[in-house]
């Protein structure tokens, strides 16, 4: 019931995104035909190519053609790659998704112990240390941090490769470590702050006191009662940020020259590859909306107090 309502809610949003991106790419000055042809082409050649690409049709006709195709699952062909947009996007999606998943994993690995440590020793040295660390890394621009990690660990120490994605799973982990670390250092502080404060709240809750009084071991109390409840708010924050991250990895991908979605977006805008820009934006929209949905579901599972209708 809840799921169906949320899914129905997604449709107008996705339609809105489609409309906005369609109009937006066509408002940008710059003619794809002129860019494809280069400087030597005469104006007649440019018009010929525009005709062939269907760009001379009235705007509303182009729009309905596009929407009609999307409904049938066809995002069109890229003007640059001359292949189906979906195919081009899926090739580039893998590194981006891998990077984001990797970063989310690292972030949780860093967040949980540090936040727990800080919360259990509230207002003492570990707590202040962790909070100071969070404030400091939150103040670092990720592209700058990334470049510095690159200079130190890849260029000077040569522990990690300077760039790229690698060919198999092990290499992916190795190649993407520095970029994932960069994202982690931006993401973890927010998570640490949120988890720490909800842990502090939960630690004071009556049922925790009760569990302790009953003689349940401290470890069990922490695992089953405290962490689980406190994590739910952190998952929400992680979910909110994942959506933002998908759009924001562009900069990290630029720094570490990973051929992911980010570079595809930028190069497609520069080349005015309308079908690819539209497809990427739509797909981003679907991803963000689905991640939000997923976050709500995970939230409901983690925190038994939450119910949806």
């Amino acid at each position: 019931m809840f799921l169906r309502k949320r899914l129905a809610h997604m449709l107008p949003v996705l339609f809105g995104i489609t409309l906005v991106v369609f109009l937006m790419v066509r408002l940008i000055p710059g003619d794809p035909a002129r860019i494809l042809l280069g400087t030597h082409a005469t104006p007649e050649r440019v018009t010929e190519l525009r005709l062939a690409l269907g760009l001379e049709q009235p705007l509303w006709q182009q729009f309905f053609l596009f929407v009609g195709n999307v409904v049938r699952g066809d995002l069109g062909d890229s003007l640059v790659y001359r292949r189906p947009v979906l195919e081009v996007i899926l090739e580039r999606l893998a590194p981006t998704l891998f990077l984001i998943g990797y970063a989310a994993l690292l972030s949780l690995l860093v967040t949980i112990p540090l936040a727990l440590w800080a919360a259990l020793r509230q207002n003492r040295l570990p707590d202040q240390g962790v909070r100071g660390f969070a404030t400091l890394t939150l103040s670092m621009p990720s592209f700058w941090l990334g470049l510095n990690l690159l200079i130190l660990f890849a260029v000077r120490l040569r522990w990690f490769p300077v760039a790229g994605y690698g060919n198999d799973l092990r290499q992916h982990f190795w190649h993407l470590f520095l970029p994932a670390l960069t994202i982690t250092l931006a993401l973890a502080p927010m998570l640490i702050r949120s988890l720490r404060s909800s842990l502090i709240d939960v630690l004071k809750a009556p049922y925790v006191e009760f569990a302790r009084a009953k003689g349940v071991s401290e470890r069990r109390v922490l695992q089953h009662h405290v962490l689980r409840t406190a994590l739910s708010s952190t998952v929400t924050i992680l979910g909110l940020n994942l959506g933002w991250l998908i759009g924001g990895t562009v900069v990290i991908e630029t720094v570490f020259t990973i051929a992911g979605m980010g570079s595809l977006v930028v190069s497609s805008i520069f080349a005015r590859d309308y079908p690819v820009i539209q497809g990427v934006t739509l797909l981003f929209g679907v991803l963000v909306v689905s991640i939000n949905l997923l976050t709500d579901l995970v939230y409901a599972i983690l925190d038994p107090r939450v119910t949806y209708e």
């Binding site: 937006m24 759009g247 805008i269 981003f284």
Partner: peptide, 15 residues
Amino acid sequence: TAFPFLVMVIAIIAI
């Protein structure tokens, strides 16, 4: 909210 931030910013600056 669901529109990719960067696409929007680059596009608007271009427009």
